[in-house]
Amino acid sequence: MLKGVTIGQFFPGDSLIHRLDPRTKLLATIALIAIVFVSQGFAGFLLIAAFVLACCASTGIHLKFLFRGLKPILFIVLFTFALNLFFQSGTTVLLQLGPVKITAEGLRMASFMAVRLILLVVSSQLLTLTTSPIALTDGLESLFRPLEVVKFPAHEIAMMMSIALRFIPTLMDEADKIMKAQKARGADFETGNLLQRAKAMVPLLVPLFVGAFRRAEELALAMDARCYRGGAGRTRMHQLRFKGIDALAALAVLALLAAVIALNAFHVW
């Protein structure tokens, strides 16, 4: 039942975007999100969408994975669309049914918000599709490093994230084993209403937690044995280095920003 659960949605590859420094990708994603907010019209959105789709195409990842992330927010998108459609005030009435009227302004606003939401999700999707969780962690640690002056625990947080990633498959296996052991003793995880099923999980969760604590203790000992003493004075085997392609990516994102601002200025559509 727990088999085949993938962690994150990273697709290994060797494209230009895959090879970018994770810090570049993180910053570019933040910039992309900002650009989505900067855009005032559909022409800008079209440009951003073209940019994201082109990026995705260049990685060799199937486009459908870009949109997979939309599923959980589909409801929010529809809800926002409906809200704007019916409650945006406007003068040009397109359709009127009793007290409910749909105006041209409402329709524009509703579509605008929906497209904006979709673009936000899709462009951040690009980051997680092309960056391994480890690279992401390294990138975050490196970006938050400067904040250590104000006692922000950048190294500790990154270490916690990578240990969590390391132990997800291990704990998954363990949960599977415990589940089978409980089933062999007649436990029933599949029938009954929500409450009953939640209750059935208790005998699964208790041993899982106890096991996790035991593991944590042993891991801490093993880390001590290998001279771990926090982030201070630590070096890394893999150094993150900005390369030519990182500058190129930065330029591309800046160009996109400039184009979107220009479209805003000329009030294109």
């Binding site: 480890i134 593991r215 891991l219 093993a222 630590r234 085997m237």
Partner: peptide, 24 residues
């Protein structure tokens, strides 16, 4: 299972040396 720290074999192998501050 409980003594491997990193998510990649070579990264784990490097863990001790990284702690000692060895040059990359």
């Amino acid at each position: 299972d409980n003594q491997i720290v990193a998510t990649i074999v070579e990264e784990d192998c490097a863990f001790g040396l990284e702690n000692l501050g060895t040059p990359p």
